[in-house]
């Protein structure tokens, strides 16, 4: 199985590579469009600010590449947000793979949300053998409201989509590579899709 991590210049993607290795798989970091399009599983990571990250993705011409993918593709954190239609962060146009709008948390709670949160509910193969009571680690100031594509719901002052799916495109708001046993299980589920 060819596993790639889209490397478009955003930080800390080593951790994701290492997490996949701990599960007994090998993943390659790549910015090669050809290699990405030939993969069996694609990880689309992201941390930092939406507008910058989108600009970096476009600079490398990888926005078109990600749009063309037909294999299971997992957006993580900002990666998931960039898969959406639009983000309030820097008023950024996303890839439009998920017809969702990314909003900023507006509550009395602290922003960013940093730490371990569980689910109100989960569904689908990505969450196979994961209970809603399992915790995942997240760091984010922006969120996707609940909608038709939500496959996991968490709550931080407001219920939000902690995971999304449409066809082969999956997105998780949390960092499975940093979420201990539960995160490893989710990565394994994705690799077995």
């Amino acid at each position: 199985m060819k596993i790639v991590i889209v490397d478009y210049g955003v930080g800390n993607i080593q951790s994701l590579k290492f997490a996949i290795e701990r599960l007994g798989y090998q993943a390659r970091l790549t910015e090669s469009s050809e290699e990405i399009l030939n993969a069996d599983k694609v990880f689309f990571p992201g941390v930092g600010e939406a507008k910058n990250a989108m600009a970096m993705l476009k600079d490398k011409g990888l926005d078109q590449t990600v749009r063309q993918l037909k294999v299971p593709t997992l957006g993580i954190c900002l990666g998931m947000q960039l898969m959406c239609q639009q983000s309030e962060e820097g008023n950024t146009q996303g890839l439009g793979l998920l017809p969702c709008v990314v909003k900023r948390f507006e509550s009395n709670l602290k922003v960013p949300q940093i730490g371990w949160n569980h689910f109100d509910w989960v569904k689908g193969d990505l969450f196979q053998s994961l209970k809603p009571t399992e915790y995942m680690y997240s760091v984010h100031s922006y969120y996707v409201p609940l909608g038709d594509w939500t496959i996991a719901c968490s709550d931080y002052g407001t219920p939000y989509s902690s995971a999304l799916q449409i066809d082969n495109f999956y997105g998780v708001q949390f960092h499975p590579e940093k979420s201990s046993f539960s995160g490893s299980q989710l990565l394994l589920n994705f690799l077995k899709l």
């Binding site: 930080g11 800390n12 080593q14 290492f18 997490a19 680690y137 960092h175 940093k178 201990s180």
Partner: peptide
């Protein structure tokens, strides 16, 4: 497989860049 922070004597963008590139969260 959990997040970690690195500190102590960090004073520049270069210091931070190396630590984050090597996998510090």
């Amino acid at each position: 497989d959990i997040p970690f922070t690195v500190g102590g004597g960090i004073s520049s963008i270069e210091d931070v860049s190396v630590l984050l590139q090597n996998g510090a969260d």
